[in-house]
Design a protein around this nucleic acid. Sequence first.
DNA 1: CTGTTAGCGCATTCAT
DNA 2: ATGAATGCGCTAACAG
Lengths: 334, 334
Amino acid sequence: MARPDAPPTLYDLAREAGVSLATASRVVNGSTRKVAEPYRVRVLEAADRIGYRANLSAQAVARGTSRLAALLVSDIVDPFFAAVTAGVSRAAEAEGLLVTMSVTDRRSDRELELLRTIGGFRPRLVLLIGSRRTTEPSSELEDELRELRRAGADVVVVGHHRLPFASVRADDTTGARELAEAVAAAGRSRVAILAGPADLSTATARAEGFRAGLRAAGLDPVAVVHGEFGRSGGRAAALEAVGAGADALLAVNDVMALGALSALRERGIRVPEQVAVTGFDDIAAAADAVPALSSVRIDLEALGERAVAVALAGDDSAAEVVPAHPVLRASTGH
Amino acid sequence: MARPDAPPTLYDLAREAGVSLATASRVVNGSTRKVAEPYRVRVLEAADRIGYRANLSAQAVARGTSRLAALLVSDIVDPFFAAVTAGVSRAAEAEGLLVTMSVTDRRSDRELELLRTIGGFRPRLVLLIGSRRTTEPSSELEDELRELRRAGADVVVVGHHRLPFASVRADDTTGARELAEAVAAAGRSRVAILAGPADLSTATARAEGFRAGLRAAGLDPVAVVHGEFGRSGGRAAALEAVGAGADALLAVNDVMALGALSALRERGIRVPEQVAVTGFDDIAAAADAVPALSSVRIDLEALGERAVAVALAGDDSAAEVVPAHPVLRASTGH
DNA sequence: CTGTTAGCGCATTCAT
DNA sequence: ATGAATGCGCTAACAG
């Protein structure tokens, strides 16, 4: 029944406590507390007596800024993004920020649309997680972000990108290079790269790192196969790579590597005896795979936490990099 | 430089378009459009000329209600919650709602605290995902939810619970029963239940279902071992269960089952030859496990979508149930 | 159908 | 240190 029973307002609080609006405001919002103790307690007591809860939207209007951290993520079901999101969530809440999360589905149009509506809330932070296609025109996106920036939001992009904003990413190149070198050192000479989408910047950065590592070992990839970023993409790519005679498959992420493993298993191809397989990100499932998947470890949650820290710092030219190093397991015969 | 460059307001828009505030408002906010075409276009053109974007907080204040859907989730890294969240996100956005996501870490105090701050935004929807401990006093939580309800929010709880609010959950009992029966029919007679936390209502509902299924097959569980909900909990429980002589392990969720698989593998115990293992939820990783994990399939994203639909319906006594049925795979010898 | 005006809940300057 | 008054950006009667 009694639904639209309006919550008590600051006015109600003031009246209940027998003080002025201003005084009530000063004690419940914090600011530079300059309220005498007796008044303080009266207000505080009155507050929980009537169950007062500040209307954050009204605060945002009056203050001209909100306590929202807007998070845009490609796909929350992907363990990679889920982990980063967890980090963002923790760090944001520690800063007293409420995080809004929207999934872009990797579609630029949705990304843009979401950014627009979110902008309406005048968020304090805007975090873009998930690498951008390198081929798509990002000018619209860039404009929108710039707009948000002007409106007072600090924006940071997680992952590789070419946007003029602060960024946080893993040291993909180093991790990839080291992993490729380790695989070469393990005696594989015909290694293929499961490169994922050709226009995904993170994927290409990792593929480049693989190449560099192989080169350092005096090798050239026997194949570089592109495809979907997901598990089915990994399956298809794996099949194509072994068809090309590969004895090692370096995937640009764990999910693809897992797909590769399952495809190889179905084909009766033994890992690591016949073909070695590696992933990237070291998601939880990597260690549990059979055989356990060699990968490149990245502290995903830390990545998320750093993202909000960097955003809060407010330096557009910041470009933080978190470490990424190989974790060698059974899938490479280690 | 020009950072705190205040975004254009409705007032600016009106001036730019040469119309009144009210007219400008009418065209940009939609409502029952009663604006003559010529005016409409003038406002619209002016809008994107100056890059006008409505201040949603201000709208919320003026309207007395927001377009926010507040989502509280136990652990976003858990594939189960991630999938449900994805469904919620999609459905909410389809309704023009922005979703805020907070992770409770399964701690009641955080849950309560988050609910309080979120309440400050006067959200339109509040979704609680993740089953509640049955032992903890939920009165505070209940009060808080009731408060939100009074303030105009529609609240729905996903999963089993004992709260007087709308709910959406999977038909765990049926799914569990059917799975247990299938395992029994496959010739297992000494089945153990990896029951998870004794005070997690979803876990107990599933365990009860297992019991019922075994009973129907004339069996009694040889062991019911409680423990953590996660993968390590599954490992420990599995070891204890096989110690008790079990030839089948029914876990209350996939993550635990996956942990069980890995523990058994390390011990050299063969699945399904020596011991059958089953999970619950049928997360993506279940089908990829080795051996492929038998589980109970639930359309997790649909669960999330239904949650917002039910919430929007606004009926506190709604109690929707989505289907759950076994998916038999190699881990049970199917 | 359009414009005026009075709030919405709160922060904050300005007097006191 | 406190209170009265003004404004934040927007919506919703209310008149015209």
